[in-house]
Design a protein around this nucleic acid. Structure first.
Lengths: 110, 110
DNA sequence: GAATCCTATGGCATAATTACCATATCGCCA
DNA sequence: TGGCGATATGGTAATTATGCCATAGGATTC
């Protein structure tokens, strides 16, 4: 690794930590739901269809990454999107998927 | 999992596959380099500072995700960015990092 | 304060990711 | 064709991620 790369390494590790938090279907599903409004864990558990503890851990990952924030209200915890930039992320992902589809079609259909 | 979520599950899995490809510091470093111009594997190997086979596998992951494309020229393989939307991705990640920094500073410094 | 609901955490098993080494493959040149 | 440089792939070990169960903790209600 050259010197410049070594120096910028922590920077890319920080970036990767954020990306990793976004790299799971259940977490993406929850983020989509949270984009509309805040939800309690029980609602997200129902949505995802996994064990409540599993969902809680997914939410902890998103929270640790700084993507969501939580708020306690009585016995419940409500999660909400904390950042304003997820639309950029979605757009990028969707563009790649669309492009992949186009490429595939070109390869098959001609 | 409710019915709507079950139906959209493959959609989120596809999205997560793309996000996962972006979720590694070495791959992010290489993408940054590739954003300027195409590079051969040997250049990227030097940049990343890992084994050549490791870099080759990282590139295969990016290619499989449809994020980069390759071109053989003689004994070398040149990789280049295939999609135009990575700027959106970077912007999102950077915004999260910046917001996290802000939050931390608020927690400490006040 | 006991029961209950909601959420978080510890423990553990399994699957996925990652990295390196060794080696196969491909293109080129003598 | 033999050797060489550049890549890709198979094999394997170590680390990390994921999911469920059991259970702890906190709040509410009776």
């Amino acid at each position: 690794m050259n010197a410049a790369a070594a120096k910028s390494r922590p920077r890319y590790e920080a970036r990767a930590r954020i990306a990793k938090a976004l790299a799971h279907p259940s977490r993406l599903l929850m983020l989509d739901a949270l984009q509309k409004r805040e939800h309690c864990v029980c609602e997200l558990t129902d949505l995802v269809g996994a064990d409540q503890s599993t969902v809680s851990k997914h939410l902890a990952i998103l929270k640790q990454a700084g993507i969501v924030a939580d708020r306690k209200e009585g016995p419940q915890t409500f999660y909400r999107i904390k950042v304003c930039c997820l639309a950029d992320f979605w757009r990028c992902i969707e563009t790649v998927l669309k492009e992949n589809l186009r490429t595939q079609q070109a390869a098959f259909g001609g």
